[in-house]
Design a protein around this nucleic acid. Sequence first.
RNA 1: GGGGCGAUGGCGGAAUUGGUAGACGCGUUGGUCUUAGGAACCAAUAUGGCAACAUGUGAAGGUUCGAGUCCUUUUCGCCCUACCA
Length: 847
Amino acid sequence: MERYNFKKIEEKWQNHWEKEKSFSTKIDKSKEKFYCLEMFPYPSGKIHMGHVRNYAIGDVLARFKSLKGYNVLHPMGWDSFGMPAENAARQNNLNPKDWTESNISNMKSQLKKLGLSIDWDREISTCSSDYYKHQQEFFLELYDKGLVYRKENYVNWDPVDETVLANEQVIEGKGWRSGAIVERRKLNQWFFNITKFSDELLKGLDVLDQWPNKVKTMQKNWIGKSYGCEVNFKIETDKDIDEIKCYTTRPDTLFGMSFLALSVDHPIAKFYSEDPNFIKFKEECSKIGTTEESIAVAEKLGFKTDLLAINPMNNKIKVPVYFANFVLMDYGLGAVFGCPAHDQRDLDFARKYNLKVTAVVKPENEKDIVIEKKAYVDSGILFNSDIFDGLKVPNESIPEIINYLEKNKFGVRQTNFRLKDWGISRQRYWGCPIPIAYDENNNPVKIPKELLPIKLPEIKKLDSTGNPLDKMEDWKKIKINGKVCIKETDTLDTFVDSSWYFLRFCSPNQTTYGFDEEEVKYWMPVDQYIGGVEHAILHLLYSRFFMHALSLDNKNFNFKEPFKGLFTQGMVCHETYKDQNNNWVSPDELITINGKKFLKADKTNEVIVGPSESMSKSKKNTIDPEKIIQDYGADSVRLFILSDSPPEKDVQWSDEGMNSSFKFIQKLWMLNQKIFLEINADHPKNSENKIEIITNRFIYDVEKNIENFSYNKIIANFYEFYSAINKLINDKIEKKSLIENYGNSLIAMSPVIPHFANECLEMLSIKGFKSKFIWPKINKEILKSDKINFVVQINGKTRGLLKVNNGINEKDLIGKMREDNKINNYIKDKEFKKTIFIPNRLINIII
RNA sequence: GGGGCGAUGGCGGAAUUGGUAGACGCGUUGGUCUUAGGAACCAAUAUGGCAACAUGUGAAGGUUCGAGUCCUUUUCGCCCUACCA
């Protein structure tokens, strides 16, 4: 028998799919649509195992839905703007465009080798002006809707590279590349007004019943809605300060207030800007902010002012006002009142500066409460609070006190969000230019639509420092309404690119607008979105925001949730290895001798095997998919990457596992050969329907498991099916039944191992197998005709199994029990006190 | 500090959602074939025991005819987030 030549066969089918455009899609209103989308990759150069897993999961679903008769949209594109291109270009002296394009072409050919059912006619790349032209139009559209504005904001500034760094590029207060100490600098930045939709983005989550709760919770926390009130504190001072407003969720603890604390960036700080002690304090605060992120709880520090704040609940109580390092300017109002007894931070602060600690909440049924090192934050009863004593905390106390504050004009009810507006300016070259220019007075002017796209200027090589666009004097000039203006040199955050790409896939060639309304109406929303959990917050939230923004005042575009179903897959892990000198070692450099791992170069040096961790270049525990596909074939890789763990959990890569998947394909091939011998033998009809039972069971299980994302169980189904058929094949199965059932089971396998299944199906079609592209219907009657393993328990202990007919009743079953010697031994001569009978499953007899 | 998830053989993991605990794979052991095998095939594989049987899902209680699954308490681990007032 011939071995399965995966190279030849996989290439054959990949060429076939490409030539036939098997996966190209168009609107077909006679069919239900299914939009299956995996997060598009950043073209870093090569695909990695995470991609393989992500796209294998998506491909199984896309192929399955297509077999189920859906009109499936399954596109792919490139998230091709971003810093890695710029960095690579600087390092290797090339231009980001060439680098990116060559990576795309390489990765595209790698993806094709995986045999994905992708409509490549819809391929898009965000760095192409065909794409970002529309993004610039969207920017202007949002600008007109009042959702874009400019304000001064702090950024992480790397003084050596003369560039702005993202938070994750600041490592221990230093620039990740230059190592220079990062400064806080104020720059004018563009913002999207995402907070306008805070409430809607929060409420929208409730509708998303096909999203993991984990992700919804993360978004909820990120939006961070809180209910409280603004409290006005009158200030006693000789300075020109009347009052300070604080935001609080616990106005009911006002009677326990012992200080008021301000952020160093609070407007009041201007009265102290000359005070050398304040300047020193402010410097110290900023040091802690950037250099000691790793320390979980920085020490609470304060700078005492000469101000006194008057407690609105009792104007005889006057408390000191501090600037404090733990108060943030960009949350609430940048000012808080401190109630040490009932807030841990306030307590720490009070203990440090010897401030009064007055408890105003005590546990129910207690007379008093003593506060030492731990603040009391639980529910209880209000006391020491004048007329409010005895109220239940928090359900009665908070509304009552807010009412009182509002009535007396001491404050107003207020909800607050943690969510901040989305800063979209990036001081970089490799991104979408912002379609704004500045006139002679430096006022921003929209660049008219006719002048779009504002293309990135061609560039030979990048300087090592600064924003190249800023230095391109010719490019910067633009004539708007006859006047020369200077273009914005910031580019857009790449999260903007990925906030609408799923719309673009619906009509990738539309030139007049970012998408075609009809196409979007048909295809959107994405029915199943699949990707890593690392995008749980930002990318998904920004995309949701973008849909809200486009929907605003737009009758023709009115859906707000882009992703109906979301699935977040786990990571691919691998053992880590280190040599004797504690350097990471790649699995390629190892050789296994007697189960121990040695360096290939030096077989006397055993390496230290570390824990399995997610594959990363820095730990050198990556496996190159291209090589694996070359050695084992795409079907084997797909089979393995789906087999070991549920897709939402991490999976361990192992050579042994990969090898066994490869061997399994070979075994299936051998089985295929055997089956063809049986078909040719043309056996006569046989009354048993074992093959029908096995096949129907198999198809039923696979279908159920695909729909529940239990892909690892599908692979188990494959193995079970294989051994069942492999045994059964000796029973001389009738030709027609064999062709029919084997063909159907191949279809059920095809989403996972498409090349193999299609090859076998093609061979089978010569023998007369017809239905090629339809998911087989399950015959439920046949499933019912299968015998059932009935569990027999005596006094709750399992004492045996009876193979009985489906639907057997209690009386007949007890009869069967008496026929079984072993079981009968337990029940003969005994009186049944109680019988629990679960049809088709279990009987429990209490004696 | 806050939030979320989890704990099942030597390992990855199943368990129809309260009904045979350990599917399927890896590994291990034994066997067959082979010049040989790290190939292929067959068989065994939770623990103790020759067996009948007993025990067993991080720990301790509870509900139930019946608990990996539900409840209470507790320990440990992972992930996210972080001075959010």
